[in-house]
Design a protein around this nucleic acid. Sequence first.
DNA 1: TGTGGACATGACGACGTCCTCACGCATCCT
DNA 2: AGGATGCGTGAGGACGTCGTCATGTCCACA
Lengths: 228, 228
Amino acid sequence: MTTSSRILVVDDDQAIAEMVGIVLRGKGYDVVTTADGASALDAFDRLSPDLVLLDLMLPGMDGIEVCRRLRRRSGVPVLMLTARSDTADVVEGLEAGADDYLTKPFEPDELVARIKARVRRSEAPSTEQLSIGDLEIDVDGHEVRREGTTIPLTPLEFELLVQLARRPWQVFTRETLLKEVWGYRHSADTRLVNVHVQRLRSKIELDPEHPRIVVTVRGVGYRAGGGS
Amino acid sequence: MTTSSRILVVDDDQAIAEMVGIVLRGKGYDVVTTADGASALDAFDRLSPDLVLLDLMLPGMDGIEVCRRLRRRSGVPVLMLTARSDTADVVEGLEAGADDYLTKPFEPDELVARIKARVRRSEAPSTEQLSIGDLEIDVDGHEVRREGTTIPLTPLEFELLVQLARRPWQVFTRETLLKEVWGYRHSADTRLVNVHVQRLRSKIELDPEHPRIVVTVRGVGYRAGGGS
DNA sequence: TGTGGACATGACGACGTCCTCACGCATCCT
DNA sequence: AGGATGCGTGAGGACGTCGTCATGTCCACA
């Protein structure tokens, strides 16, 4: 981890809170503890933790309500921790927006494993990965790679490639591409598309004279080859 | 739901598989069942399900291995379902990339609630929304809005704002900002930060002379005000 | 209240990206 | 085969963004 994940522990049982704190700090997490709902929400706003570990039984506002309010302001992973193990309670907790539900007594190892799973998933940004031919397209990271090495593209070239790669084999007319990539507002000069297709090819094609990734469909437009 | 979520159930125990199928179909899910690892992976490639419910004990390839292979090709939510309840097993399952782990016997309601929680989270567009003052920051869409109208920022200005807004009230030194926003490689001239902070302010502050969103902390650096 | 350091602000130039245009080549139809 | 049309390719210029510098202003501290 470049910087350790912050975890907000909300539990009024001091023994549990301390134990959890020790365990999690031992695993390299940055732990902050609060004992009631109001201060939990306050701490949340100040700290922007990466995960909230929430006891169901709290003085004042209960855990369900805290969870609902957290959900209103953020998509932070919430792991509920409670002594109540009725199915109805579990269902209620999950319905309120919790991501996981663990009943006391619990094994510290399992707690840590479940926290890791939640943090892992929320830190892994919905990495939309497209592949076309031998290219890997990281849509969120705005990167295109061939065998691990990044190919630098301009924003426009990247958008053009993504548009084509999202529907392999489908042919896009120049008009469609202008609308989708450039936006509505643009002039109707479709030769603009040619130029950028060519620039794109000069960067991503192994043999730009015989393009295999972005293929011309004469009289219609362009399509991305599916990799075969 | 616009279209019902597809769930791939992998279990060689026909009684369980049938029961799970009935329960989930009753909740409106589209369920496909396979009985071993190889056909599960095959079905996965064909169907692109929205969630995989995976028994740990399978003929041939075990559930852990199936989970690993799924992870290699996709970020699909995986919920493990098994008779083994040792903490070590839970930890191993979660380490292998599972998102949740439920032990038999289980309550159908809890299964459904946990599935809903997973699907809900994976369907929620990872729209990371930050707000700072009266600004709304759409991190994925690279857009900043005030009362609905977008404020045009350059990529650099946007990254700078996001960096500050991710930790409201926390003060960032110029060195930190240079490292985080500009990347490692950069010169040590911290005045560069001043210039871009000023440009950012001229666009996002209502009264650039008295900035309230990006605030100077004399002798230290800058911080984003939390909106109060 | 004066002084030095820290910060704000404006100007300018380098650079990259994008759009337009001109021309050459390939492909299709008769 | 020859013309017409569609496409590829290179050059050049407009524009926006970013880095640097010079100067002006604010603030803390004595």
